[in-house]
Design a protein around this nucleic acid. Structure first.
Lengths: 223, 223, 223, 223
DNA sequence: GATGAATGAGATTTCATTCAT
DNA sequence: GATGAATGAAATCTCATTCAT
């Protein structure tokens, strides 16, 4: 593997902090996190009430505060959990045998295709104000760092293609940043397209199709 | 002109309702709308407080309610105002002399390039839950209709290209919907890229570049 | 005449303060008072809004404050106006030729029968909290004095009957106070009976009938 | 027993919902209800503030909303509680051994004598606009039904007397409605007389005396 | 004198967080 | 460790009153 996959995984592990899945305490923790995720996604941060989350998790409100020290903390952990699952699904991208263009396509397929399954991250990258405030209050700049991680990742993916197409360092960087920025938009795309009667898979595939052909066209100009 | 530009413009005019810009009353109304837009963008709908909006507009809380009958009404008018500005900027797309591919590029340039200047519409198309609730409370289905309008518009733009490239009706429709869905994502892209040090214009241009080449490649496959 | 009819009339005159009924200013004043009365009756003191009253009177809100220095003042004058009309209608009771029992019956007929036409006084004597606060804020004890006036009146009416039936001073006083207290209840009776399908006139007549026969029975027990 | 005493008692029980009087939670509930009753009586519905009620009950504002879902709900329960107490005190009227005239007198003694102890019901039957709106919002027509219940009750009381005195059905009905309407006025009577220095008991007794003798005179006309 | 836009105190209600049991 | 009743800050909206025009 490469890029800093392992470092990211380790830093997430701190947050995800899995205990014994048989431990009733741990089970309650996970139920709370699952309920919180659902409510945050469905109603947004502010409108999601701790009371409802607790009720859905089958615990009392006070119990939530035994596991998480605030509503914001709950969001932070829910996001970390989602992120660790996301990373897990991204594994195929790191297959050393993958040719550069295949790696790019695999990355985009996964990144866009998973958008619907990663609703919290989507909201965060989409720029949800409440979510951002929660992160900013905890640690100003944390979001920037998270995004820089992603840019590094995208850069690593695009690097061989940059060489091939003769992009300058700056051009490579810009395209990496554009891609990362776009990730935030994909969940909106998927959600909107869904309302318009276009399946998530189809809309993601169409976007990938359009982008890849432009980013790394397989056809040569006729001489 | 074509598509239903004028009908949309007329229906917006009702909401925007401009008075004499010298009239102090009208000036206050605009200051309130500007302040509201800023707060809604910065803090989201729920967290934006009428009190703060009033303070920033330099009026008392009660005055806001003289101009707008509720906080929701404030959002509705702020969105309508933004939309009318958006439409104004879209005018070049309707230039009859424009060849199809140029029209598409102009449309995308504007649609993506303006995303940063249309923060409320962006939020709405991005699927902000609070915003949607406000619109849904006013008139269930209004968002669906707004999006159908946009699909019709995108379809009108893509139509000549579909003919040229031999897309079926269904393929044309899917791409139109994908594009409209993507609009919602572009503001996230722009916002995110901005944080990453990529200007709004540059990130939009890069996305357009990638998309257009894919959607309507100027190069032919070598025979 | 007797009792202090004239003194009461004079003291009301100060409040009622009629000007020239042709004077447009005076006409506006009366329209305001009429509108206020209607709103106070229909919605109570608090819920009646000065804005609505002004609108119904066909003047601007500020104009109300040119004529009356506060909402409370508006109520005070509306009540005084009603009271002066009430007194006018009570005139027949003072006919010197009236035998005592007839005088009592006339008094009760009028007092109860007019309840429906004197809605503000009714509310006040019924003990409406808002109304009472308005009076109390103006002048603590004013209501007590108003009621003492009425007791004096009732006492004057009952006096000959007390002599005939051998009531002590105390018994006379108690009955006078009971009657005055009852006046407050009659408007409630009339309103309630109305909702139950009993006309105001009929319900008042039935009450008078019952009361008079008990207070001054015309039949003697057989020896 | 007869009339529909038990049905009414059962329907009230739902609202009153007594718990263990030792339970601190239940104690707080009762303190809130008592405080609310006092404030509603003293200041009317609108001016009684939830904040003041909470303060007087010795709890925080939020606690009121744990027990009652709105200010209106608070009024509803306070009225139901009063009504159940009222019904309890009315029991003697249902004594089967009571001769008709005694039953009427007992009913009036209680109905009028208790008016001072049933301030909320009094306000409601007196026609307080705010109170009525609260009930009407809950269930349009509820007041009409409550009053019809009372008319049925009064009719049951008067029925034997009607037979004896030869009243037609219509005359019986009218007198029953008059009496029910009057009940609304009695609290005003009692309150007013109280301010005039006449005890509640005495004023009620005097009214009963006057009414009963008229409604059912024990003396015969000499032939 | 008349107007009506502006003000801001005050009302009800929600809900994250604490803490005695 | 778990509970859930209690808290009170903060939000939206109303409306009597003032005052520049």
């Amino acid at each position: 593997m490469s890029w800093d996959f392992d470092a990211v995984e380790r830093s997430l592990a701190e947050w995800v902090g899995r205990g014994d899945p048989e431990d009733p305490r741990e089970r309650a923790r996970r139920r709370i996190l699952a309920a919180a995720t659902e409510h945050f996604v469905r109603h947004g941060y502010r409108k999601a009430s701790v009371d409802d989350i607790a009720r859905q998790a089958g615990v009392a409100k006070g119990t939530v505060y035994l596991h998480f020290k605030s509503k914001a903390d709950l969001l932070l952990h829910a996001v970390a959990l989602e992120k660790s699952r996301y990373l897990e699904r991204m594994r195929p991208v790191f297959d050393a045998a993958l040719p550069p263009r295949e790696r790019l396509r695999t990355f985009l397929d996964l990144a866009f295709g998973l958008a619907g399954e990663m609703p919290l991250i989507s909201r965060l990258t989409r720029g949800d104000a409440d979510f951002q405030h929660v992160f900013a209050d905890l640690d100003p700049g944390i979001r920037a760092r998270m995004e820089e991680d992603q840019v590094g990742f995208a850069r690593w993916i695009l690097d061989p293609i940059a060489a091939e197409r003769g992009w300058s360092e700056a051009e490579l960087g810009d395209r990496a940043r554009m891609l990362v920025g776009l990730l935030g938009g994909v969940s909106a795309l998927v959600g909107n397209a869904g309302r318009l009667g276009l399946s998530a898979a189809r809309s993601a595939a169409l976007l990938v199709e359009s982008l890849v052909e432009g980013l790394a066209p397989s056809r040569k100009d006729p001489e």
